[in-house]
């Protein structure tokens, strides 16, 4: 007989999800586009050469924008597809607690995003060839970027549970991620400033993914930034779990 204890459900789902990316052309397409876009942005918009500095700031500073579109695309199918094809019913009657389902899917997507990030290593090689960068700072930035990717994925995965349509899931996720990316900037804050109390405006401003990545992208690691991304992930995954239980009908 099988048992309810342990994490075999999480492990099995994680394995299935991760290999699922490579069973389809999705992995290949995503990785190529991610690496190509991040390279192009670094060299053209980031003026990598003209800055004449041996660091990867031009590379990391575009990550919020890259993630804003690519990670919702990665996460949009996570629940929407299960709901559309009816496999959600199968998945949720295997005796796996729902928190393990949410975590299994999330960890697989996050691992995949990490792999995509690792594939940008030629830039690191390049910058080491051209100059003498602070490699510790670069590693910190990579970890920071991966942490931020987790936040984008948690948000997108949570919103995917709301609909059967992947397109709607994508648009919803991009919209929410856009607001949260820029919530420290006038574009979003102006909408609150005229009516909301100062404390709320400050609270909204503090939710900005971009602001919290600012330090990490320069290789400066602060507890508050790491904490922010960890809490963002936890909150959205928790919301995902609650919505999953509510929305399965």
């Amino acid at each position: 007989m099988t048992s309810t204890r342990g994490f075999h459900g999480l492990r099995a789902l994680y394995k299935r999800e991760l290999s699922g990316y490579f069973n389809t052309p999705l992995a290949l397409v995503f990785m190529i586009i991610f690496v190509a876009l991040s390279g192009a942005l670094t060299f053209y918009l980031g003026n990598f050469y003209d800055r004449r500095q041996a660091d990867l700031l031009p590379f990391f500073q575009f990550h919020p924008w890259l993630y804003l579109f690519l990670l919702p695309a990665l996460a949009m199918r996570l629940w929407a597809e299960e709901r559309r094809s009816g496999t959600l019913e199968l998945l949720m009657t295997l005796g796996i607690p729902s928190y393990q389902l949410v975590l299994g899917k999330f960890l697989a997507a996050w691992t995949f995003a990490g792999l995509a990030l690792v594939l940008t290593f030629p830039l690191w090689v390049t910058v080491n060839y051209l100059g003498d960068p602070d490699n510790a700072a670069i590693v910190t930035s990579y970890l920071g970027s991966w942490l931020m990717a987790g936040a984008y994925l948690a948000i997108s995965q949570c919103l995917s549970v709301l609909t059967r349509s992947q397109v709607i899931a994508f648009i919803l996720a991009v919209a929410v991620c856009f607001v949260l990316t820029l919530s420290g900037f006038p574009m979003v804050l102006d909408a609150f400033q005229s009516w909301a109390p100062g404390a709320l405006v400050d609270a909204v401003a503090s939710l900005s993914l971009m602001t919290h990545f600012e330090g990490l992208s320069r290789g400066v690691i602060t507890f508050s930034d790491v904490w922010f991304f960890a809490v963002t992930m936890a909150v959205w995954l928790l919301a995902n779990r609650c919505l999953l239980d509510m929305k399965k009908a």
Binding site: R16, S85, G86, T87, L90, G95
Partner: peptide
């Protein structure tokens, strides 16, 4: 659910 084998309508699978 450990005691149940379930074939949902339409036999969904990955």
């Amino acid at each position: 659910q450990q005691h149940i084998g379930y074939l949902p309508e339409g036999a969904p699978a990955y």
